[in-house]
Design a protein around this nucleic acid. Structure first.
Lengths: 222, 222
DNA sequence: CAACGGCTGGCAGCAACCTGCCATTTGCCG
DNA sequence: CGGCAAATGGCAGGTTGCTGCCAGCCGTTG
């Protein structure tokens, strides 16, 4: 039995001071998973790091993987930054489910984990324990696999479907005929079919089967 | 800045010896994520732990969550064990993507992470660092959200679809009309529709829309 | 009020889909 | 070879889905 150290720091400032050298010293891999980019709220810091890593990134020396939740895309500035980073060769994915706390793994040798907020400051842990890192890494990998590429995520601009639209999709998903569905929803057959045609146009589908696939992909079928 | 300890042990035996008291002392929550149950390969140990936790589990005092990959279901004994545990009130989910290393979190106070194999023995880390635990916990939560309940996972006995069936589903997913699809696949219209009817019966669908949803759910649409 | 636009629902006609029936073909086995 | 079962494909008649057209209703606007 051996024991290893986990260093806990409080607040971004201290973290920044103690780990800056790690970020500039990346040699092969940089993995980052977080809900959004509030941690590195200082845009200038982000820019500086990005600029420093740029040459290695474009030449493929360093593999950069970033995993965020949709929250990171809500802020336009963050979204543009992510797209820019992706354009430079980093792999960026969006994880729709769950929201990992901030996790950073550098060269599979150092790991930084964000924890809870205490007395106004967030706590972070820094560790180099290989066992710990490989364990967390596999969890990150699992989440990574379930996430979707940012380009694909943005490409599928999920069509806006109102409550009635969702009821209609549900009726379709239940396998009801138009006549039954229309009656159940209190619509005339004509109007119901008009709605279905609109939904199909919205979903970009050319057949009902395809519409079913698309509706499922967009998570519109409960 | 503070520092916390991470204890590393080698091999299941040492782990077992040092952490047995933790398993018996669970008071509120027990989370376990792993690829399969090879770690606790000693069936007797498993049984003993299960038996000891049973009263608390059935009375809802302790929340037990278990997260595995489909590999755990391949072995019949393991599958039965999981179903039995689920029947006792534990929540068991299967994570199709990725394969987390073994992770155990007890009462959100102690965490055990499995690492790499070294000299024939697996390494495990044991820690009580709250920051570390909450960080890993959020990762587990994310994977948990993406996973499916074991009952649902087993219930959906994915229908067997051969290569031609998948080509037909693809044609349907591409929005082709029956006539075009049949010609493209070298089938008569009649036979093509026969195939579609078979597939719909196989998928348990009553309309083409519903069939599209189901096919998507089963991952039959590439 | 009148004119307008948007939404609705009925009708009709067409296109697509579904299926029972039967003749034919294919593959297999004795 | 003959016989059998399964699969195929054509046909016919049915249902369901799709949409253009038009008449009616309602709220807005001038």
């Amino acid at each position: 039995m051996t024991s290893d150290q986990v260093i806990t720091v409080r607040g971004e400032r201290e973290l920044s001071a103690r780990t800056a050298h790690l970020f500039t010293g990346v040699t092969s891999e940089f993995i980052c998973a977080a809900t959004d980019m509030d941690t590195w709220s200082h845009r200038d810091t982000r820019k500086a790091i990005t600029a420093r890593m740029r040459p290695q990134l474009t030449e493929g020396e360093v593999v950069v993987r970033k995993l965020y939740t949709p929250a990171a895309l809500a802020n336009e500035e963050q979204r543009d930054h992510l797209l820019a980073v992706a354009g430079m060769g980093a792999r960026v994915r969006i994880c729709a489910t769950g929201l990992p706390h901030e996790t950073i793994i550098i060269d599979r040798r150092v790991m930084i984990l964000a924890g809870t907020v205490m007395a106004g400051d967030r706590e972070f842990t820094v560790t180099t324990s290989p066992t710990l890192i490989s364990g967390v890494l596999s969890l990150v990998e699992a989440t990574w696999e379930a996430a979707t590429e940012i380009t694909a995520y943005l490409h599928r601009d999920a069509p806006q479907v109102d409550a009635e639209g969702r009821r209609i999709l549900q009726a379709l998903g239940d396998g009801l005929t138009d006549e039954v569905a229309a009656r159940r929803l209190g619509l005339s057959l004509r109007t119901y079919r008009r709605r279905v045609a609109e939904l199909m146009r919205l979903l970009g589908s050319e057949s009902r089967f395809q519409a079913g696939v698309h509706a499922g992909e967009f998570g519109l079928i409960p």
